Computed example of a mutant assay.
Amino acid sequence: MLDLDEYHAALAALDWQVELGADEAILDAPVNRYEAAAEARAAAPEPPAPPQPGPPPMVEQDHVADAEAAARAASSLDGLRAAMAAFEGCELKRGSRNLVFCDGDPGARVMIVGEAPGRNEDLEGKPFVGQAGQLLDRMFGAIGLSRHEGSLYITNVLPWRPPRNRDPSDEEIAMLRPFLHRHIELAAPDILVVMGNTSAMALLNRRGILRMRGTWAEALGRPVLPMTHPAYLLRNVAAKREAWADLLSLKARL
């Protein structure tokens, strides 16, 4: 046992170490921390087994194949309209008021393919009835063609209005292309006029309508004339001169 003097000396030495910052007692023999960690891991419980994989996720329905099957089954324009009205693969349908199918005479020699309905078209259920439609009527009326007199037939690539009139996506174009192709086959026009980038993509698989316009092409075994959309002409009045040249080219072809 320590005597009183030794006790006070030991206590003073301990206080001195605390002042120096010592906060842990050191054992008489060193400790191998690697062995201690290994012993701790060995004593730890086994981790739970990973969950077994469940059944594979459902494969998303192929809406393009559904559209192709529905379009092939339509034997008339009325049947095609009904098939498009029953088609549930396109989300645009849920936000639209009306299916915009066509306007004009299905027996006309010239078929115009527009892009997608706007607000007025969605409300009335007919293509090209807003300001762009009024300009279209004046344009083609200048070369003697009219939807009201049996010489024009009009449709769109998309029958439903995209929200806020945004451009149709490539997926939407691909999904509804089978209906458009069948529409053209059933209407059997002599000449197709594609107006805007969306219709050029759907029928010619190309974009760049400002470069393509006025240059005749071919789709589905028919001559195709690409033209700028009337909505573009409303914003760019100077482009109307080029559109007039395209109309004269169409008139000469007829």
Results as ranks from 00 to 15, higher is better:
residue 190 D to L: 10
residue 213 R to I: 00
residue 95 G to H: 09
residue 25 A to Q: 02
residue 217 A to N: 08
residue 178 P to D: 05
residue 234 L to M: 12
residue 11 L to P: 06
residue 190 D to K: 13
residue 180 L to Q: 10
residue 3 D to H: 11
residue 232 Y to D: 15
residue 76 S to H: 01
residue 104 G to Q: 03
residue 185 E to Q: 13
residue 98 N to S: 06
residue 87 F to E: 01
residue 172 E to P: 05
residue 123 L to H: 04
residue 18 V to H: 07
residue 209 I to R: 07
residue 47 P to F: 08
residue 3 D to W: 06
residue 225 L to H: 06
residue 69 A to L: 07
residue 185 E to W: 01
residue 183 H to S: 09
residue 90 C to W: 02
residue 132 A to R: 08
residue 179 F to A: 01
residue 96 S to D: 03
residue 131 Q to F: 00
residue 161 R to K: 11
residue 171 E to G: 06
residue 33 R to V: 05
residue 254 L to P: 00
residue 246 D to G: 02
residue 225 L to M: 15
residue 158 L to A: 09
residue 121 E to V: 02
residue 84 M to G: 01
residue 38 A to C: 11
residue 232 Y to F: 15
residue 71 A to N: 13
residue 213 R to N: 02
residue 131 Q to P: 00
residue 9 A to K: 13
residue 26 I to F: 02
residue 240 K to E: 14
residue 142 A to Q: 02
residue 249 S to I: 00
residue 70 A to Q: 14
residue 232 Y to E: 15
residue 114 G to C: 06
residue 171 E to D: 12
residue 98 N to V: 00
residue 14 L to V: 09
residue 72 R to Q: 15
residue 133 G to R: 11
residue 211 R to V: 01
residue 49 A to K: 15
residue 99 L to D: 05
residue 9 A to C: 12
residue 164 R to M: 07
residue 234 L to G: 06
residue 75 S to W: 00
residue 149 E to M: 07
residue 5 D to N: 15
residue 178 P to A: 05
residue 44 A to R: 12
residue 187 A to V: 11
residue 159 P to F: 07
residue 15 D to G: 03
residue 203 L to S: 12
residue 128 F to V: 00
residue 13 A to M: 03
residue 154 I to V: 15
residue 79 G to Q: 04
residue 189 P to F: 09
residue 200 A to N: 12
residue 82 A to H: 11
residue 3 D to S: 13
residue 163 P to K: 02
residue 150 G to S: 09
residue 67 A to P: 13
residue 209 I to L: 10
residue 239 A to D: 11
residue 76 S to Y: 04
residue 145 L to M: 06
residue 207 R to D: 02
residue 240 K to T: 14
residue 142 A to D: 06
residue 247 L to I: 00
residue 244 W to D: 09
residue 240 K to V: 11
residue 3 D to F: 10
residue 230 P to S: 06
residue 222 R to K: 15
residue 238 A to H: 14
residue 31 V to Y: 00
residue 219 A to W: 06
residue 107 G to W: 04
residue 15 D to M: 05
residue 53 P to N: 11
residue 71 A to P: 09
residue 60 E to Y: 07
residue 119 R to A: 03
residue 75 S to L: 10
residue 89 G to Q: 13
residue 17 Q to S: 09
residue 116 A to T: 08
residue 25 A to D: 00
residue 8 H to M: 15
residue 34 Y to V: 01
residue 49 A to R: 15
residue 104 G to T: 06
residue 154 I to G: 03
residue 115 E to F: 01
residue 66 D to P: 00
residue 40 A to V: 12
residue 95 G to M: 03
residue 35 E to D: 11
residue 144 G to R: 05
residue 32 N to D: 10
residue 54 G to N: 13
residue 226 P to I: 11
residue 53 P to Q: 10
residue 5 D to L: 15
residue 122 D to Q: 04
residue 30 P to S: 01
residue 69 A to N: 08
residue 231 A to I: 10
